[in-house]
Amino acid sequence: MQYERQNPAFYALLVALIFMAVGPIVLMFANSFKLDVDIISGTSGLLFLPTIQNYETALCDVLWYEPEHLDFCSLKFGGAFINSLIIALVSTVLTLVIGCMAAYALVRFTFMGRDTVSLTTLMVRMVPPAVLLVPVFGLWNNEFCLDKEGLIGGAIRDTFGGRGDVCLAGTHSGIILIYVAMNLPFVIWILQSFIVQVPRSLEEAARVDGAGPFAVFFKIVLPLIKPGLAAAAIFTFRIAWNEYLLASALSDRNTKTVPILIVNNMSEFNVEWGVIMATGMLLAIPPIIFTLFASRQIITGMTAGAVKG
């Protein structure tokens, strides 16, 4: 492929753009390795003695040794990190499985057009999480409960303890459920645009060779829509991983996710910049890794949404 030569001003512009896009992230990365004293006095940006003390403070509850500078471990970051991981992974897998089934059904046994699906997607995308806050809070606490006198509810309560009815609020599954529901339309929409491209004759050929419907789906269709799956997975994971508002309404002390932890520490009067930047960096690392390795899939997913739809 031939590349055109451009004039130097053009490259200067490119460098400026890259600096603007990545600068704040690099700045945060650098600050997370500084002591608070260095951040506040901050003589020059890049000359400092890097320290991992902030990360030790943040991760103190999962470290195998006790950091010297800490008296006791106040920040339960490790636990929140694990919660976030469980919630994001489980909801991604669930969304993909359910979404895949639905998308396949919509394409192959059509009884609803693509227009309906894209309209639903748009409508669901339109609903802000803040709007879901009130009803979800109410429902998850009051309605979606197993009665404590009932059979299953009673059994769960006896095993895990606690008073009152067994409700969805405060459990991992409660948060996972709402994330799955929020992401489903988008995932179905993306996967549908990939499944449509799988030639029908291929499936029929497999069926003639004696493959059952499930074998056809798993051996023929699934490998062909891998890029679509990757894009959908990244988007779902990103939303589940980054979401703050609904998680804060639905979680309790033990199911806190990382964003909640950061916001809680932020609103306190005296901000410890170094530690908070370290937690922020830890939260940002998984999406950054995805972006660096799968940027093509992300771009596919984004453009499939707007350009084709």
Partner: peptide, 26 residues
Amino acid sequence: MSILRTLFILPMMIAPVVVGLMWRYM
């Protein structure tokens, strides 16, 4: 160009909470 695009997507992939944090510091 593809590297450029990759770097450009970074800001939107990062958690809004973290974005708020960065800008509050700046």
